[in-house]
Amino acid sequence: MRRKLVVGNWKMNGSRAANAELLAGLNAAGPWTADVAVCAPFPYLGDVALSLQGGRIGWGAQDCSAHESGAFTGEVSAAMLAEFGCRFVIVGHSERRALHGESDQLVADKAKAALAHKLTPIVCVGETLAEREAGETDHVVKRQLSAVIHTLGHCVPQIVVAYEPVWAIGTGKTATPEQAQAVHALLRAQLHAATTKSDEMLILYGGSMKPDNAAQLLGQADIDGGLIGGASLKAADFAAICKAAG
């Protein structure tokens, strides 16, 4: 049995006061059998590390540079994240791909940079509404994951994959459990062709998972947890999803 993982993606939200209140609420919640983490904006990583250190909740960042160091103004390296005790880093989120023009190869290079510093990259893949309506879902997610598989080679089992249907992020829409499971199964098969450890790898669902739909989604055979956006900003909602995961 794969142990469930629930990760909160705060995106560009929060303040020191609001974060402290949220983390206090999470620290007081539980216990859960699932693994739990939050991915915070860069400026708050120090505060998050202090609040969560020694507890059962991990932390991470929402992006990292593909470069080790140098003249890359505004970028943050995986080495810097490791200094703050990060366990995870999200790479290839749909918002990064769409708003910052990140290519499949750049996402793969970021995952490689993260692994070099013992961070677990949460590699996001997913299709837009236009791509789904055109019947291109399978092609798009396989193309996105293929770049990562090709770049990482034997290190592929060290990543976490997150399927995030772009049309279900922040829209209130959610893929049905059956729709989500179909894509997760496809990704599992692709990983199976690349590594003998595919059955041990985690594939998270990242499309508007909430307390009222979490149990159904998490009950699917190949859905191993969630990458949670809006609901991760409310301690009660996020804790409810963590409870649904185990």
Rank of each mutant, 00 (worst) to 15 (best):
G74T: 03
G58H: 09
L45A: 04
A34F: 01
L50H: 10
C39V: 04
E102W: 03
G54V: 09
A78V: 04
E83D: 13
A20I: 08
A78W: 01
T33E: 08
S15W: 12
L50C: 09
W59N: 00
N27C: 11
W32Q: 00
G58I: 10
G55T: 11
F84W: 09
A37I: 06
C39T: 02
E83P: 03
L106R: 07
T33F: 08
L52P: 00
S77G: 01
L52D: 02
K11G: 11
E102G: 02
I90W: 01
G70Y: 07
A20D: 13
W59I: 06
A28T: 10
H100F: 14
C39F: 09
V38A: 12
A82Y: 01
G14V: 11
A17W: 15
A18L: 15
N27W: 08
A17T: 14
Q105H: 13
P31V: 11
A71M: 10
R97Y: 07
L99I: 06
N27Y: 10
N27K: 15
W59G: 00
S69K: 12
L50K: 10
A79Y: 01
V38Y: 00
G60I: 00
N27E: 14
L22G: 02
V38F: 03
N19A: 15
M12I: 08
A78H: 00
A79L: 13
D47C: 10
S51A: 14
S15N: 13
V91T: 12
G85A: 12
A78T: 03
P31F: 14
R87L: 14
F84N: 03
A28H: 07
A61N: 00
M12C: 15
C86R: 01
Q105I: 11
V91H: 03
D35C: 08
G92R: 01
G30V: 05
N13H: 13
L45E: 01
L50A: 15
V76Y: 04
W10T: 05
N19V: 12
F72D: 07
P43T: 15
L50P: 00
G46V: 06
F88R: 02
C64T: 02
R16Q: 14
Y44D: 04
A71T: 09
L81I: 02
C86L: 10
N9I: 15
G46L: 09
S77P: 01
